[in-house]
Design a protein around this nucleic acid. Structure first.
Lengths: 216, 216
DNA sequence: CGGATATTTGACGAATCTCAATAGGCGTGG
DNA sequence: CCACGCCTATTGAGATTCGTCAAATATCCG
């Protein structure tokens, strides 16, 4: 987050942020709660999701190291957030952040830029959820994670999957069974390979690109 | 858009914006094009959508009077935009807008606020696309349009549908046939009524709320 | 009034979901 | 170090929703 700020700003920011840690499965906040803090993930991962009254769930995104958590509208969280694996983050203390944004316009620029990025991602995901087949969904997901690893300075291979099949299924809008069957099919076709510790090897990137329905 | 600005800003803005008009079906811009302008819709409507190479389409949103059109990432449009009905808009002339944003921080605030609103809408729509049944999708859609009419200062009833069934279907992630059948079913159950000029009457708001899967 | 377009309806098939059972991983304690 | 138990993942069989293809209406506009 601090990349958008200059030195004196950073000093002030340091006094406002606190290092926090959440165990796997810990709920960071729930949809509808007042949004009184902003988090900058420094380790582990988290998922954002929405629930229906009967329990159906849609995961709207996964957040990895470096992502901002806590973007809100009208001071209320629009999604719930839960830690995946051990999650660490920088958190600002109650209520201070708004004031800081007022003082440092560059911070607003950063927040705006991030919001637009998230929006573009959301649009791509709407295309996936509304129009793609099960195979296209799973392959698109793997390719996106691979690209994301690259952007964050890691290798494109192997793709790490810190989340469960149920999380993936609720992200892709299919059931865990369908996701599992689809992964098996891709494995059988030889375009991916499963490795220990929930890692996936992308064997045939070209064929995968085609299987994704022509995109990322 | 001008609500966020003070008087001297407005004067400068007036010199930069031009009134433009598009006939129904006219493509305002395509995904991937350089984003060199920002539009403020003053009449008619538009749809945003993404296409897959084989022609499958996902409508990511409908824009009505007062909405901003042209939010972009890295200077490229992330969706295509097409006019629905006769569309009018205020458009800034090439390249000037960025400079204006730099000069007037309040404008960035407005853009950021709008982006966050769109993001929240996108999250709700992901839940719809990923987890709702055909009936829930259609009813949610009608209720959202009704609320939107209220927010924009119109009556909640009857709901106006300026877009085609194909547009609705591509927005809801189902086929036109499924949308049509679903509407017929709702009509038969007596919870909605179709009127001339693509207007829909919401007869039983309480039952509709339940049919939407418990939400807006 | 008439052609074109949009919408509705019907019959059938396919993709996916549901329910149920089996297999695999991983951590803990003996 | 290995066995047990729990949780996750995989696999199977049948049910269901929705999509596809095709045809019949309805609606819009000139």
């Amino acid at each position: 987050m601090c990349a958008a700020l200059t030195q004196p700003d950073l000093t002030e920011l340091a006094g406002i942020m606190t290092e926090v840690s959440y165990p796997a499965g810990k709920i960071v906040f729930d949809e509808g709660e007042p949004a009184d803090a902003l988090y900058n993930i420094t380790g582990g991962a988290a998922k954002l999701y929405k629930l229906m009254p009967d329990g159906r769930r849609q995961v709207t995104g996964f957040l990895l190291q470096g992502d901002l958590l806590g973007l809100a509208q009208n001071g209320r969280h629009s999604c719930s957030a839960e830690a995946i694996g051990q999650m660490r983050a920088c958190r600002d203390v109650h209520g201070r952040f708004d004031a800081l944004v007022e003082r440092f316009p560059d911070l607003r620029r950063r927040l705006h830029h991030d919001a637009v990025d998230e929006l573009v991602e959301a649009q791509n995901h709407m295309l996936l959820l509304g129009r793609k087949t099960a195979v296209e969904r799973v392959v698109s997901f793997l390719l996106r994670l691979s690209h994301r690893q690259l952007r964050h300075g890691f290798t494109a291979q192997p793709v790490r999957l810190p989340m469960t099949r149920a999380d993936i299924a609720d992200y892709l809008g299919r059931t865990t069974e369908t996701v599992s069957r689809t992964i098996t099919k891709l494995k059988t076709q030889g375009v991916i390979r499963l490795r220990p510790e929930s890692e996936v090897e992308l064997v045939d990137a070209i064929r995968l690109s085609a299987l994704a329905g022509g995109e990322a």
